[in-house]
């Protein structure tokens, strides 16, 4: 029985992933902003077989409370085995271009809060020399594109940060898993027109669960995004800058 902490537990992808831990009978510490939604997910996970479920209401931008959150989790269950950081927002690129505040907000939620949390978790896991830290980043972090570079830059920061962290913690037996989903059909993308590239949260959740189990490094979900992004990353900048991506 493992102790799992999920930050951003009410997101559709996090929920789909958490169901696999619940079915296995793990202990779950669910962190999110809405007590109402957390309670509904907690009930669902209990029915599905989670050994114990605790919830913690937190706005991840409240950086001062990260330690309190982790201490509460470990106070309830003992040392955590897995921390999955899944929170995020998809900012409106156009609005960000017109507003410094909006741009910094997007950065705060998608990069700064994650980096702050990772720092705390990493130190705890490093001292114990075990555990898995998984972060849901995005394929958008692989290259800056005009349509989505604020979000992309934040996710890019997370990608580089986790890459370095993985390098540091690999020697200590701690796995850092960077998950890069493509388009997923969730409330976050509800406003986007859907196409054949969209994956279901269930499929993505199953893949993330497996990646955590296998302590993988960088995971594109679904797998074909690896090829799409490899292609996109290799387009020379002089051509890329003229494209409408």
């Amino acid at each position: 029985m493992a102790n799992i902490c999920i930050v951003g537990a009410t997101s559709a992808i996090a929920e789909a992933t958490t169901r696999h831990f619940a079915a296995r009978g793990d202990r779950l510490f669910l962190v999110g902003r809405s007590p109402d939604k957390l309670a509904m997910i907690a009930n669902d996970m209990r029915v599905r077989g989670a050994a114990q479920v605790e919830t913690f209401v937190l706005d991840v931008n409240d950086l001062d409370r990260h330690v309190e959150m982790l201490e509460t989790a470990e106070g309830a269950f003992g040392p955590l085995d897995v921390v999955l950081i899944a929170h995020g927002t998809l900012p409106d690129q156009r609005e960000c271009e017109r507003s410094v505040a909006k741009t910094l907000d997007a950065f705060q939620t998608n990069a700064i809060s994650t980096i702050a949390l990772l720092t705390e978790v990493a130190n705890r896991f490093e001292a114990r020399e075990r555990g898995v830290i998984a972060v849901i980043s995005s394929v958008a972090g692989d290259r800056g594109r005009q349509s989505n570079y604020v979000y992309g830059a934040a996710k890019g920061a997370v990608n580089i940060f986790t890459q370095g962290l993985r390098n540091r913690l690999a020697k200590k037996g701690v796995a850092v898993v960077t998950i890069k989903p493509g388009f997923v059909d969730t409330p976050m993308t509800a406003h986007l027109p859907k196409n054949a590239l969209f994956a279901s949260p269930e499929d993505v959740g199953a893949r993330i669960f497996r990646a955590i189990e296998r302590r993988e490094d960088v995971v594109y979900v679904p797998w074909f995004w690896f090829f799409i992004m490899t292609l996109i990353r290799h387009i020379p900048e002089r051509i890329f800058k003229r494209l409408n991506l």
């Binding site: 509904m40 009930n43 669902d44 029915v47």
Partner: peptide, 14 residues
């Protein structure tokens, strides 16, 4: 979402 499952009595709320 499932809401509650009484495994003794076989009553499921969802």
């Amino acid at each position: 979402h499932f809401i509650a499952f009484d495994e003794e009595r076989g009553v499921l709320r969802c």
